[in-house]
Design a protein around this nucleic acid. Structure first.
Lengths: 211, 211
DNA sequence: ACTATTCTGTAATAATCACTACATAATTCA
DNA sequence: TGAATTATGTAGTGATTATTACAGAATAGT
């Protein structure tokens, strides 16, 4: 879809070769946007941070909007993929949801990265442009639909009673996940986030019967 | 503390009288900041929205930061006071928390105001200035401490078992409340938010015994 | 060597940012 | 009436915003 890069290898392309690593720049920009937010972070901040000049940045990424969205996609493909990865083994739906939430609790408070989830933090902020806001919301909802699938799967397998309102329960877990991301940004520790997860998971009891 | 206004009545003050209503302007600015966020909303937007010129605005409110903080305080004193008001009658701590959350569910999705909670949305965004960020976090934490009090009161009255970790449980409810504010901004209906509240409240069962 | 192509650095673009200098108008107090 | 005080409207301030024009440098293909 978004073919920013030609399919040719770098050493087979004509013209002067790029002097910086594109993926490196994307990783650095991701962290900067993640920490400071879209509106707060300026392109001047980025050029000084990356050590390259504006024309090089614009030639490689197009515009600030496109750069930000590519940084979001880079997050989803790397760090975000780890956070929300669900094992495809024979685990129960509840165990998969539990692992997802616990991974998030660890990742959101990982000092090696900015606190919280990049995508969830991004949808919490406001934007001048409406299209970029919609693009982020779309990516977020697609990502969160994984939780809907897990809850529905729990109902199908009988792990949750047939009377369960799957949409409502899924929305509850998504709500908690969003809150966790913000708690992390406010300084919550891994233990505190795990406690929130443990509390939330009580709404999906390990025993078959509810109430 | 912040004496922006002299204690004199308006018609007893010397000099040319102000031609706009200060409280009206504050109310309008609150809604604008609430909807668009601090960094996204410009002072030029505000002057055109209020129909007054920059010097009048700066003479009345000082700076953008001060204006925003005063808008936050205006929210806390008016709309926010309603949202988080807890009846001081003889209700049980659980009933008071339930009412707080249900009121929030209604208010966050009230079409008469921007969606979500102004303060909670504000702490979710990033700021250029560190001091304004801290000011908002302080106001938010002071506001949220009400939930801590209710949970601790529940433990004291025996409504919750003595083994309850009050801090953890309170942080869980705060997390849910924050998530609700964002869900509202993403378009969640009153019914959907009430369903989240109903789910969250299951962690504080109405019966005496847990589990 | 020559052309085409692509990147890099310098320096600038118009637009917008928060904010204000200044003269004038409208009020209170004497 | 006149002095003091405060608000208003016009028109600007310098700084910062995202973005780019342009000339030169470095590569590939011929």
């Amino acid at each position: 879809m978004s073919a920013q890069e030609l399919p040719l290898a770098n050493n087979q392309r004509r013209g002067r070769p790029r002097e910086f690593d594109r993926t490196n720049a994307l990783e650095c920009a991701m962290r900067q946007f993640w920490q400071h937010g879209y509106e707060t972070l300026s392109m001047a901040d980025l050029t000084t941070c990356l050590g390259i000049n504006p024309p090089s940045l614009y030639a490689a990424f197009g515009s600030k909007q496109a750069f930000f969205l590519e940084a979001i996609d880079h997050y989803l493909a790397t760090r975000g993929a780890y956070v929300y990865a669900v094992p495809s083994d024979q685990s129960s739906p509840r165990a998969m949801l539990a692992q997802l939430l616990q991974r998030a609790a660890e990742a959101f408070s990982d000092a090696a990265y900015p606190a919280g989830c990049f995508v969830l933090s991004s949808i919490a902020t406001t934007y001048d442009s409406h299209e970029i806001e919609q693009a982020i919301v779309d990516r977020c909802q697609q990502r969160m639909s994984k939780i809907n699938e897990l809850v529905e799967l729990g109902v199908q397998t009988g792990e949750l009673p047939a009377t369960t309102n799957a949409d409502e329960l899924a929305q509850f877990f998504i709500c908690v996940l969003q809150g966790m991301s913000l708690q992390a940004r406010l300084g919550a520790s891994t233990n505190q986030l795990q406690a929130i997860v443990a509390n939330a998971l009580q709404l999906w009891p390990q025993t078959m019967r509810l109430r």
